[in-house]
Amino acid sequence: MSTRLLHPSFQNGIRKGGGENAGGILTCKCSDRPVKVKVSGGIAHNHACGCTKCWKPQGAAFSVVAVAPSENVSVIENSDKLVVVDRSALIQRHACGACGTHMHGPVEREHAFQGLSFIHPELLDNNSWPEPGFAAFVSSIIEAGVDPSEMEGIRATFKDLGLEPYDCLSPALMDYLATWTAKKNGVLHQ
């Protein structure tokens, strides 16, 4: 069992999500003129992510991230504060330039995830979002400075929480990526 802070929402176990997820309003951490992003409709593939690109709460080794169709994600307040973290990245993470909170990350170029936006459900104004279903890019936290000797305990903690730890995405999402690529390359037909 790991004593490292994986994510604040995991401290007392995984909160069971709502079955009627209808989105909500994401709000950055600023007390003055916070950025607000509306998510109309449900989110999917909620998971813990250890990649070094995702925004994480202070002291957390993992983010909690999900996707929504990009057409369901819109900035409704203080868009002037948003900056793109890395224009060369697949996920165009729009962060508040003042507090650094990542608000939404659309995938705009040709990719299996094109048309989806990555969001952090913990920023929603309600608790109806679905609980995380797996942990992705677990070994990537080593790149952020976590000692490799902690990994066995971290993976065990995720398993105890009911989250399968992967060093990539879940098998269903990896199958989706491979299918998209095979169709694009003509190996599989529509």
Rank of each mutant, 00 (worst) to 15 (best):
G100E: 13
G100S: 09
G100I: 14
G100R: 10
T101V: 15
T101G: 10
T101P: 13
T101I: 11
T101M: 12
T101E: 06
H102Y: 08
H102I: 09
M103C: 14
M103T: 15
M103W: 07
M103K: 14
H104L: 15
H104Q: 12
H104N: 14
H104F: 15
H104R: 12
G105C: 02
G105R: 03
G105A: 02
G105V: 11
G105S: 05
G105E: 07
G105M: 06
P106E: 00
P106W: 06
P106Q: 04
V107K: 00
V107Q: 00
V107H: 03
V107S: 00
E108I: 13
E108M: 05
E108R: 01
E108S: 00
E108G: 01
E110L: 09
E110N: 09
E110A: 11
H111Y: 02
H111G: 00
H111I: 01
H111D: 02
A112T: 03
A112E: 01
A112N: 00
A112Y: 04
F113T: 00
F113I: 08
F113H: 00
F113S: 04
F113N: 04
Q114T: 08
Q114I: 08
Q114H: 02
G115D: 08
G115N: 04
G115R: 08
G115H: 07
G115P: 03
G115Q: 06
L116H: 04
L116C: 03
L116M: 01
L116W: 06
L116G: 00
L116Y: 05
S117A: 04
S117L: 03
S117G: 02
S117Y: 05
S117V: 08
S117K: 01
F118M: 07
F118E: 08
F118Q: 03
F118A: 04
F118L: 10
F118W: 10
F118S: 01
F118H: 06
I119T: 10
I119V: 12
I119E: 05
I119Y: 06
H120V: 10
P121D: 06
E122K: 12
E122Q: 15
E122S: 15
E122N: 14
E122P: 11
E122H: 15
E122I: 15
L123H: 09
L123M: 12
L123V: 10
L123W: 05
L123D: 14
L123R: 03
L124V: 09
L124M: 11
L124S: 08
L124R: 01
L124C: 07
L124G: 09
D125Y: 07
D125W: 06
D125N: 15
D125F: 10
D125L: 13
N126G: 14
N126V: 13
N126K: 04
N127E: 15
N127A: 13
N127G: 13
N127T: 09
S128D: 15
S128R: 14
S128G: 14
S128C: 14
W129H: 07
W129M: 01
W129S: 04
P130R: 07
P130E: 01
